[in-house]
């Protein structure tokens, strides 16, 4: 006779367990040369800071770099005449769970040389910090805020590192982490209470809010004063 299966309530109260260590891990770099011209240039210029490369999804070259040198490498990739990756298409994060490092992924494109390149930085869970590249590409500003919001990666030097998708006062953590419970950490009643206590003026402009006028107030009934 086995113990009764835990209900969803028990599981919510106990919190999440570490995810399955046998789950697929991050793809690893492969040995060998790359056809992509930026890979050899990166390796010759930055040496050990470039940790490897791999061709993924057919034609996408991925380069792993050391996070402490990321700002230097990305600045060079943007400014060097032979590279000129002038468009930061995406900055995102990946959590593979089981205490594995969180990866920050930069997807870049050079409109001059018509080349795409993807960089990945492994960040250990105890040091989720990396230099911000919002000063190089304006598009990285909101994308880094999104990674901060959902994965908890701190971007050093970011001009405005706030949450962007979740409410500003969200206190339950970073939802896309593998150790985040599916329904959040608070009860639904607490989540509802906190949601309705939000200051709407903080994330909607005053013009938008003024459209419908102030909230409807039902005037309290008062007895007419007797004239004396």
């Amino acid at each position: 006779m086995t113990e009764r299966p835990l209900s969803g309530l028990d599981a919510v109260e106990r919190g999440p367990l570490p995810s399955d260590p046998s789950a697929p891990a991050a793809p690893a770099p492969v040995e060998g040369q790359s056809d992509h011209p930026s890979v050899a240039a990166l390796a010759s210029r930055f040496g050990p800071a470039v940790q490897g490369h791999r061709l993924m999804a057919g034609d996408q070259t991925v380069v792993w770099i050391a996070p402490e040198k990321s700002l230097e490498i990305l600045t060079w990739l943007k400014d060097d005449p032979a590279q000129q990756y002038d468009m930061m298409s995406d900055v995102t994060g990946v959590d593979y769970g089981s205490g594995r490092p969180i990866e920050v992924v930069y997807q870049m494109f050079s409109t001059v040389h018509k080349r795409a390149l993807r960089l990945r930085c492994r960040l250990p869970l105890e040091a989720l910090e990396i230099d911000s590249v919002a000063g190089l590409w304006h598009s990285a500003n909101w994308l880094e805020r999104e990674v901060y919001d959902l994965f908890g990666v701190t971007f050093k030097g970011h001009p405005d590192l706030r949450r962007i998708l979740m409410p500003f006062d969200y206190a339950e953590g970073h939802p896309l982490r593998k150790d985040f419970p599916l329904r959040g950490r608070f009860s639904r009643a607490e989540q509802t209470r906190r949601a309705l206590a939000q200051d709407v003026e903080r994330f909607y402009g005053s013009q938008e809010l003024a459209h419908g006028g102030p909230p409807q107030q039902v005037p309290a009934r008062t007895e007419p004063e007797a004239e004396g």
Binding site: L6, G8, A11, L17, R183
Partner: peptide, 19 residues
């Protein structure tokens, strides 16, 4: 809204043992 909702794999994701 109790936690007996309609997501099909809640127990697996929460790590609760199943049969």
């Amino acid at each position: 809204t109790g936690p007996f909702g309609n997501s099909t794999q809640q127990e697996k994701l929460s790590g609760a043992p199943t049969d």
